[in-house]
């Protein structure tokens, strides 16, 4: 999300921007450290930067972290594959057929903005308390943005491309693989990007609610034993991973 009309860089401007950025970061970190040391707030709520840094180091050296990261990555990966594939299929079907779109697309738009985590009790009933229910939460989260994006993308495809495919008597599967998927690369990547973001959130939230493994459960365990530096370290890692993946997928669009 960027706004229109970004100001034109002027010579020397980049340097000032960099200086300002560094100044903001230093000011925020400095303020944090002052609050941590001064004891205005409970010391453990705002641990010192060195404590967070040490906790981050310990976390990254801990084999348990990588095991839990593996569990979460597996759950999110499977969720994106299932949610993305079904979302894509449903989106293409709705986008290609006016009748289906009129009949069912409004349900997608209605269910799209509802908080998906509320379906978690149902997912536990259906798929158990293990990884299945977390994957299901990721699938439910990922499905909607991908389906909505793919349906909208289908309708934007240049009609000439579709006519070319038909004139070559392409079958439905050939139309999908040779025409549709190529022509709507951008909306699909955008949908997957959104879908991945919400799948990460859905899966991790489910882990914080009820799980013994995964990064979400590590966060809530750190909270339960009030190990604040570890919690901050985990949150930093999660943010870096989530934003990093998002940026990476954004690059694919180009």
């Amino acid at each position: 999300m960027t706004s229109a009309g970004t100001p034109r860089p002027v010579a020397g401007d980049a340097r000032r921007v960099l200086v300002l950025r560094v100044a903001i970061v230093v000011a925020v970190l400095g303020l944090w450290q002052v609050v941590a040391v001064s004891g205005i707030l409970f010391r453990d709520v705002v641990p010192s930067l060195t404590a967070i840094g040490a906790a981050l180091g310990r976390l990254l050296a801990d084999p348990a972290f990588y095991r839990n990261l593996g569990v979460t990555a597996y759950e999110i990966g499977v969720a994106i594959v299932i949610g993305g594939a079904t979302g894509l299929a449903v989106g293409i079907a709705l986008g290609a057929n006016r009748f289906l779109s009129d009949a069912f697309e409004s349900f997608l738009h209605y269910l799209g903005p509802t908080p998906k985590i509320i379906f978690f009790p149902v997912m536990i009933m259906w798929f158990g308390v293990g990884g299945g229910s977390k994957i299901a939460m990721g699938v439910v989260s990922c499905f909607f943005p991908v389906a909505i994006s793919a349906a909208a993308g289908m309708r934007q495809i240049d009609r000439v491309l579709i006519l070319v495919g038909r004139s070559f008597r392409a079958s439905t599967s050939q139309m999908v693989t040779k025409i549709y998927l190529h022509a709507m690369r951008e909306p699909i990547v955008n949908g997957l990007r959104l879908g991945m973001g919400v799948a990460i959130v859905g899966t991790l939230l489910a882990e914080t609610k009820l799980s013994r493994e995964g990064l979400g459960s590590m966060v809530i365990q750190a909270y339960t034993v009030f190990d604040m530096p570890k919690m901050y370290a985990l949150v930093i890692v999660l943010f870096v991973l989530a934003v990093g993946l998002n940026v990476l997928l954004g690059r694919l669009r180009r």
């Binding site: 990460i200 959130v201 966060v219 750190a222 999660l238 934003v243």
Partner: peptide
């Protein structure tokens, strides 16, 4: 793009 809601334990604290 950041999953803000994931830090809810922090807000709880």
């Amino acid at each position: 793009a950041a999953p803000i809601v994931l830090v809810y334990p922090l807000f709880l604290v």
